[in-house]
Design a protein around this nucleic acid. Structure first.
Lengths: 182, 182
DNA sequence: TATTGCTGCGCAATCCGTTGAATAAGTAGA
DNA sequence: TCTACTTATTCAACGGATTGCGCAGCAATA
């Protein structure tokens, strides 16, 4: 139940609309927590009822009106309280890995094909994160340091995944005498 | 929606009760997918209704009776069909990482304390996985190879996490002039 | 003797998450 | 011009997941 806390973290240093938050969930925070816009709007409604956030209504022309949310003192207290409690270890639900565990039922060539699809995705993420981390190399504020560390987590994670993929390729080729190219 | 498929993977080569499966979800498969006993019993009920599994009732004395489930041909077909469809990338929901992203609101010493708690857990998992992988070093069957690769994924993952923790420690100490010991 | 833990199954309430759709107006490109 | 995308919010339906509870008996430990 920390969608609310992820939102509060984002609202910590900027006023934002649900739409703004959804974009950030698709990018920066999406690295560690993801959510769709429906979830975000719903949660903002609840947070508002509980006085953790408040909003001002901004009429716009040319574009739809929007609500700019900001965190309240109650919200900040809740966030700090939550930061103090130990986090539960993330529950793992990786369907690709379930497929690997059941891999003996598939053709090795099919496993390799999907491995490459997943690897493409990881490589893409890796270069995105690396570019963002580079942009943060002159990190003077404490906040930037934490953003940088979050990105580093993503980078090390993708790298570990790709090393694992190398192992999978060589194990499968060892066994099946498939061509060594990807 | 691949709890059902994780169950089918487990039932592929052995008959098992809901209780047996729950134990495996807490151990081996828990590495890539976790589920509680309530979920498992419910899903077994649905799988049974859809003829993907069937069971025999085993009366026991000294212990409660149990139901031993086995996969049916329909179940195996469904599993193979599922293995062929590309897997969606896992959605990430790591509350500890949300805390890191919002770390600037905490005391660095509090962040370090929780980092060490999480690191203990990762180190524990790492040695469990390493022991299991070692036990599988003489892997003759295809199935064992896939189990081994699944474990390797867990091992590389824990190692990457621990390397990241080293980076966090040195960044925080750089900034705060805290003692360099953990 | 009392408590805890293991084996084994299940129900119910609630909450969280996903999917799909609706509304509404502007802007960019085929 | 028609289509598609962007900005912006919200509702409804469904299904998956979590939490809490309950039953039942045996074995081991404190």
């Amino acid at each position: 139940m920390s969608l609310r806390h992820a939102i509060l973290v984002l609202l910590q240093d900027q006023e934002a609309s649900g739409y703004d938050l959804a974009r950030e969930f698709a990018n920066s925070i999406g690295l560690v927590w993801n959510a769709t816009h429906q979830q975000i709007y719903l949660e903002l409604g609840k947070l508002n009822e509980q006085d953790m956030v408040k909003y001002r209504h901004i009429p716009q022309d040319g574009k739809p009106d929007k609500k700019l949310y900001r965190i309240t003192d109650t919200g900040r207290d809740e966030l700090i309280r939550w930061l103090r409690k130990p986090a539960a270890p993330p529950r793992i639900r990786d369907s690709f890995m379930v497929k690997i565990a059941g891999g003996a039922l598939s053709e090795p060539s099919a496993v390799l094909r999907e491995l490459e699809d997943q690897a493409d995705l990881r490589r893409e993420r890796l270069s995105t994160f690396e570019a963002l981390a580079l942009a943060l190399s002159e990190r003077n504020t404490e906040k930037d340091m934490y953003t940088y560390l979050t990105l580093r987590r993503g980078i090390l994670d993708q790298q570990a995944w790709l090393s694992w993929a190398d192992e999978v390729r060589s194990e499968l080729h060892k066994r099946e005498n498939l061509p060594t190219s990807a």
